[in-house]
Simulated scan of single mutants.
Amino acid sequence: MHDGEQKRNKWDVVELQKRAGVIVVLVVALLVPMWRSPPFCHAVLCIVLAGGCLEFWWAACSHAVGTQEYILLTVLFLGWFLPSLAGLQVYQDVVGHKCLVECLVIQLAVGDSAQMLVGRSMGRHYACPTISPKKTYEGYLGGAAITLLYASVVHRWPSLNVIVAYTFGCIGDLYFSVVKRRLGIKDYSRLLSSHGGLLDRFDSFIFASNALVWKAVYQQILSGRRIVK
């Protein structure tokens, strides 16, 4: 086995150990309490959104140069912040808090990990090397298949919801990667130590959860139901 292959395999083991640790923390400290308590779920979602907002602008103010750059970053910021802020007001009535807890598991624990594993073991064709150099078409497709199987069997999610969440989760990951590449940074912060900041961990979930919420809102509008707040 070549040195490069050995290093890659060693890295994969270390990365898997880190992800396993994160999953345990997520389940014990976040997912179970969020599942059992809607107010706690809402509080966590608010903290993630507020923390992500602060991280975004801390990174922007530390690395952006020029008025045009700030205008572009403002547009990119509003593109995810406004839908997320509005979604916080309606998600309980359209999908319920348990759906977003399941989305955390499906998108972050299963989807992202499946992408990484399939991409590193089978990936040959890079999808967007200038934005996210390690992402491959094989990783995306393999991750989609595993996520679809898991979410359908374990959580009984409709296939369309899984595909929507997974697809927009991948878009969210690339979206925030574009900002990082433009700012010339690896992570938005070091809040979570080697795992980066909140945006680095929850980037795909932000887009995935928004997609589920606004898909449900659209379906309610089509069916003539009124969202009560």
Rank of each mutant, 00 (worst) to 15 (best):
G4V: 12
G4W: 11
E5A: 15
R8Q: 13
W11Y: 06
V13E: 04
V13Q: 04
V14D: 14
E15W: 10
L16E: 02
K18N: 10
R19M: 14
A20V: 07
G21S: 09
I23M: 11
V25Y: 12
L26D: 05
V28M: 09
A29N: 01
A29F: 10
L30V: 13
L31G: 14
V32Y: 07
M34E: 06
W35H: 01
P38N: 11
P39D: 12
P39H: 13
A43K: 04
A43G: 03
A43T: 07
V44A: 09
C46Y: 08
C46V: 09
I47R: 06
L49G: 03
C53G: 10
C53R: 00
E55C: 13
F56A: 14
F56V: 11
A59F: 11
A60K: 00
C61I: 10
C61H: 14
H63E: 08
H63Y: 06
V65T: 06
Q68F: 02
Q68S: 09
T74H: 04
G79K: 01
W80L: 15
L82K: 02
L82F: 11
Q89D: 08
H97P: 01
C99T: 15
C99R: 12
L100R: 00
L100E: 00
V105A: 05
Q107G: 06
L108Q: 02
L108S: 05
V110I: 12
G111R: 01
L117I: 12
R120A: 13
M122T: 00
G123V: 03
R124E: 08
R124L: 11
H125K: 12
H125E: 10
C128T: 05
P129F: 08
T130I: 05
I131G: 05
S132D: 08
K134H: 13
K135C: 04
T136S: 15
E138N: 04
E138I: 01
E138S: 01
A144S: 04
A144C: 13
I146S: 11
T147V: 03
L149M: 10
S152W: 13
V154E: 08
V154F: 09
H155T: 05
H155S: 11
R156F: 11
S159G: 05
S159Q: 07
N161S: 10
V164C: 04
Y166F: 15
G169C: 12
G169D: 04
C170P: 03
I171W: 02
L174Y: 04
Y175W: 07
V178S: 06
V179I: 15
V179L: 05
K180F: 09
L183N: 01
D187P: 03
S193T: 06
G196E: 09
L198N: 02
L198D: 04
S204F: 07
S204D: 10
F205T: 00
F207P: 02
F207T: 02
A208R: 00
L212Y: 14
L212I: 12
V213Y: 03
Y218L: 14
I221F: 14
L222N: 13
S223K: 08
R225H: 15
R226V: 15
I227W: 04
I227G: 09
V228K: 07
